[in-house]
Design a binder for these strands. Structure first.
Length: 734
DNA sequence: TATCGTATTCTTTTT
DNA sequence: GAATACGATA
């Protein structure tokens, strides 16, 4: 089977990578640790499938999670093959499913040109459904209902498949009915939400053997990236498609599973061997990215998790020497931002490119403080995944116009633009329109047409405005074929008065918005059809403005997965923030492990320098709150880190004045070195002497019971406010 | 019908 | 503290 001298794309691999590439037939799980050449294995494997003649390019189904990953894979496959490859089934779960669903839309009651709704539309629609069902939106927020529905969809449950036992805890057992109504409305609107793309296709594959057989003939091999992040419906979809030939190769890393909140089930990867009989497992453990201390720190941290498949990362670099991971303690979040700023300036002076520096935060709002600092210092930066182009109001408005153009039955889009700009069509007119639509079971735009043609329903300014709008749409739609979608879009924005609305707007953002509209038209020109463009926007909501430019990257830890930088800053390692309190409240111990994996992802992004920091005081909402260092800092192996700031002094003090008593006691009574000023909240010297199981009282959180004592820190289960970690001086014995 | 003021929520993470 | 949502008022 193996030729005497393998092709050089194989010869360049290390033995474990080679094993992963060459095991072409049957199920294979590749456990790829951070920085072990996962993408390389996937792309080489793809190329190898073609080179060995096992499959044609279109017979391989390659699935990724992000658009970025699929773009990268496409580029690298064609680089290996030395030519651009066309007709590939390569994309995100959602993009591939959208493509499949367009072919079989009728099987779930949709038309081929169905609209893909974004999060905003979904919520508005659900609100309407909940209102109609007279559910108290105060008590049961629509977002919560949306969450319940999405989790069902994540598990492949259509409304019919949801059992009564599943529907107890939300809205008093009304959630299942709301789900059913919501799905009905979607079909009426000829629309699908994100979850539907997978749900519908999986349902079709489950219930239409002929369709399934067609795909079995089509896809001889399946490649899956980031398998640890798949949810149940994605798993079902894959299993159905792999059923006959079983040539499925999943690549993933259980230590980097960070999407459980989106329905991902880490069990999918843990269970792989059981799901696919005769599965082979290959471990990639040679890390070619980071220095030895960074790897050691990350490994030491993740070792605190249980239930791992287990991997040992070892450095594959020729020179793995490097600085220890820095841990910096600071007074407040402003000082933290200053520290990061000055270290970036220093690195820049020493020749590090800004493109090689990243600041990775737990939550999006944290980037703001660093942005301000970057502006003050004149350091170019970019916020990755921040305010998205396609989420801006003017873009969404323009998109709504285009959606109505493409599909008159798109009620959500129609509602959005019918009175934007203001045409004098307020509540009264809209209520009348909705009444007609409901009675005759027609889309809003048809109802509007009726109102315009009829004589009695609408009069005066409102009438002429609506007439003009409807005539406009007829005209623009007619021009679509002859003029092309870009020209029509430009005309539409002008004639509808939308551009004028912003031209007359005196607010400082208005010129920028007009600029954005022009940018939208430029983006449209890259697509053959209007429908193609709309799909792209719904599925590929990214805005990667010149990623090569020398800028510091600011982003969330989630957004950083799959990326790497020479120098990585990891600020805000504080209890409550990271690990996130909310996450802990919702998910308990499992959530804590996921937070820890997130920390692991963060550290392993760094090639040469990692700087972890925490601040003693931080402003949350409007007021200052004090925080204690994240437990993850304590979990880092001391031999591989280097402390600076207050914590270093504190630690020096501990070493210089060893206590004869073991454990907390005297050591816990050491004065806080973090200054200036006293702690604002009433603080008593560390009392020590707390034991697990004891009942305590806290000013804000009320009564609770101590779960664990860790030096001067206590894990407390509060009766009202969940589990928290606090310094003992803030609680008293109850 | 539109605008202004107040109340409320938000800060997890994304296709 | 800001952005949004909603209600009261002109």
């Amino acid at each position: 089977m193996q030729s005497p001298s393998p092709p050089d794309y194989i010869a360049r691999l290390n033995p474990e990578q080679r094993a992963a590439v060459e095991a072409l037939d049957g199920p294979l799980l590749v456990l790829a640790g951070a920085g072990t050449g996962k993408t390389r294995v996937l792309t080489t494997r793809f190329a190898h499938l073609l080179m060995t003649g096992r499959a044609k390019p279109w017979e391989v189904l390659s699935v990724t999670f992000t658009n970025k990953a699929s773009r990268e894979m496409r580029e690298r496959v064609s680089a290996i093959l030395g030519r651009p490859v066309e007709g590939l089934w390569l994309g995100t779960f959602h993009a591939l499913c959208a493509r499949m669903l367009r072919r079989h839309a009728a099987l779930v009651g949709l038309q081929t040109n169905f609209t893909i709704l974004d999060a905003d539309d979904q919520l508005r629609l659900l609100k309407q459904v909940m209102e109609a069902a007279r559910i108290d939106a105060k008590r049961w927020p629509p977002q919560g209902t949306m969450g319940v529905i999405q989790r069902w969809k994540d598990r492949g449950l259509t409304p019919e498949r949801v059992t009564a036992a599943e529907d107890t805890d939300w809205a008093g057992g009304a959630a299942r009915g709301l789900y059913r109504d919501y799905q009905r409305r979607l079909v009426e609107l000829n629309a699908a939400d994100f979850g539907d793309l997978l749900l519908h296709v999986t349902e079709i594959l489950r219930t239409h053997p002929d369709v399934l057989a067609e795909y079995h003939r089509g896809f001889r091999y399946i490649l899956v990236d980031e398998y640890q992040d798949t949810n149940l419906v994605q798993y079902l979809w894959l299993r159905l498609l792999a059923q006959s030939h079983k040539n499925i190769c999943c690549v993933g890393d259980d230590d980097q599973s960070i999407y459980s909140w989106r329905g991902a089930e880490i069990e999918n990867i843990l269970r792989f061997e059981k799901d696919f009989a005769g599965a082979k497992i290959v471990r990639l453990e040679s890390n070619y990215r980071s220095t030895a201390p960074i790897l050691a720190a990350a490994s030491g941290l993740i070792a605190h998790n249980t239930g791992r498949l287990g991997k040992t990362l070892r450095s594959g670099l020729a020179n793995a020497e490097g600085e220890r991971v820095h841990v910096v303690s600071l007074w407040d979040s402003e000082e933290e931002a200053r520290m990061v700023g000055s270290r970036i300036e220093e690195a820049r002076r020493n020749g590090t490119s800004l493109a090689e520096i990243a600041v990775l935060v737990r939550a999006g709002f944290q980037t703001r403080a660093f942005e301000e600092r970057m502006i003050a210092l004149g350091i170019p930066y970019r916020v990755v995944g921040g305010a998205k182009f396609y989420e801006r109001a003017e873009i969404r408005d323009a998109m709504a116009y285009l959606r109505v153009l493409n599909q008159p039955a798109d009620d959500l889009a129609f509602e959005r633009i019918v009175n934007t700009p203001k045409r004098g069509l307020g509540d009264t007119a809209m209520r009348a329109m909705q009444a007609i639509a409901r009675e005759q079971r027609l889309p809003l735009s048809s109802a509007a047409q009726i109102m315009v043609e009829g004589s009695d329903t609408l009069r005066g300014k409102a009438r002429s405005a609506l007439t003009e709008l409807m005539h406009g749409f007829a005209r623009w739609r007619a021009a679509l074929d002859s003029e092309g979608h870009v020209v029509v879009a430009a005309t539409l924005l002008d004639e509808s008065g939308y551009t004028d609305m912003w031209k007359q707007d005196r607010s400082p953002e208005a010129p920028g918005r007009l600029e954005n509209l022009k940018e939208l038209l430029r983006a449209m020109a890259e697509f053959q059809t209007l429908a193609g463009f709309l799909d792209h926007v719904a599925l590929v909501m990214d805005n990667d403005a010149d990623p090569d430019a020398a800028r510091v990257s600011l982003m969330t830890l989630h957004a950083a997965k799959g990326l790497e930088f020479d120098m990585v800053f990891l600020p805000g390692w504080e209890e409550g923030l990271f690990p996130s309190q909310r996450s802990l409240d919702e998910g308990g111990e499992k959530a804590l492990e996921e937070e820890r994996r997130l920390a692991y992802v963060g550290i392993t992004r760094a090639r040469r320098v990692a700087v972890i920091s925490h601040a003693a005081n931080r402003r949350i909402y409007a007021n200052w709150t004090n925080s204690i260092p994240s437990r993850f800092i304590d979990e880092l192996p001391e031999d591989h880190i280097q402390r600076a700031g207050a914590a270093a002094q504190e630690r020096a003090r501990m070493i210089n004045a060893p206590s004869v008593f073991a454990g907390g006691g005297l050591m816990a009574r050491r004065p806080r070195v973090i200054e200036p000023g006293a702690w604002e909240v009433k603080e008593r010297p560390s009392a020590g002497g707390f034991t697990a199981g004891e009942r305590v009282f806290h000013q804000k959180f009320g009564y609770g019971r101590i779960l664990r004592v860790d030096d001067d820190k206590l894990d407390i289960a509060f009766e009202k406010s969940g589990e928290k970690r606090l310094l003992d001086r803030f609680v008293e014995k109850a």
